Computed example of a mutant assay.
Amino acid sequence: MATALTLGLDAAAGGLFGIVGTALGRIAGYFEQKQQHVQERARWGHEYKLHELNMAARHQETELELALSAQQGSWAGLEASIKAEAALGKASQWVINILRLVRPAITLILWCITAAIFLITKESAITEAAVFAATAATLWWFGDRAPKSPISIS
């Protein structure tokens, strides 16, 4: 028969094992929670990198769209310029000759102004802007003005 002493020892041992089991469960829960935090941080880092890549892709797409629209606008301007020149129709030969001298004269004046700016100013930004403007104007005015070949390829 069980004595009070053995019953007390059994109760104490059961309580001790219950406390040890609870402590081990809490320790295991701590490490489990720590592992979940590591996984969450890794997931957040991945989502952050994915978000950065999406932003970079959108930025690049926007730049390409802007470049495309600028290029289309440039071609539309060239087309309008060519149509305006073609719309002159019949005129006196001396009027046509003077009209054809306007671009070379303006270009010569523009390059003389650019040379003067280059010689007078020591500010490189102003000089670079003047050279850019003169080059752009020259290529715009004479870029696609070569005589067309009378031979057509069919």
Rank of each mutant, 00 (worst) to 15 (best):
T3M: 00
A23F: 06
A146Y: 11
L66R: 15
Q60Y: 04
E52F: 01
V38F: 03
G8T: 09
W141V: 00
D10P: 00
H37S: 10
A91V: 15
A116R: 09
A125K: 14
F118A: 01
E52L: 07
Q93D: 12
A80F: 01
G29Y: 00
H37E: 14
A13Y: 06
R58S: 06
A56C: 04
A67H: 03
R58W: 05
E123L: 10
K148D: 10
A13M: 08
Q36K: 15
G143F: 01
A4E: 12
W94M: 09
K90M: 10
A134T: 00
R58H: 06
G29V: 02
L78D: 08
R41H: 13
T22D: 03
A129E: 07
T127Q: 14
A67C: 03
V131F: 09
W94N: 09
S154W: 08
K122F: 05
W75M: 14
A11Y: 06
E85T: 08
T6G: 02
A28P: 00
A2N: 09
H51G: 05
H46F: 10
L68K: 14
A136F: 14
T62E: 11
I82A: 11
T22N: 05
V38E: 08
F142Y: 12
A70M: 12
L50T: 06
V131T: 00
T127C: 06
Q71S: 12
W140K: 00
